[in-house]
Amino acid sequence: MNVLIVIDRAPYGDWSGRESLDMAFSLAAFDKPVALLFRGAGINWLRHGQLPEDIGQKSGERNLAAAPIFGVSDLLADQQAASDYRLTLDQLLPAASLVEVRPELYRQYDHVISL
């Protein structure tokens, strides 16, 4: 079973993004193929240089950088969302890749989840 978890809400706003990460890490722990897709305001998870210490939170960017180590196969960045938020590939964390979000993308997965 091949899982895609979609994060479409901004980091530091609510807990859904962190719960999505937890879910991805748990699947990866059991060697289940899992990828993350960042859409809409969720694209901002991938922005390089986040320093949330002053707002009392842990860096989403730094947490996400552990995803490849844990075995999350892909960090996919929706091209449209990236351009909506003026993000180019070099401003994203290095493990991320830009994709065009089309129905065919979703069809590569057996299970697509948005929290």
Partner: peptide, 16 residues
């Protein structure tokens, strides 16, 4: 220091 999280489980600790 790098990731601001502990490896969340034993299996992920092993992977790290």
């Amino acid at each position: 220091k790098k990731h601001e999280i502990s490896p969340p489980s034993n299996r992920l600790f092993v992977k790290a």
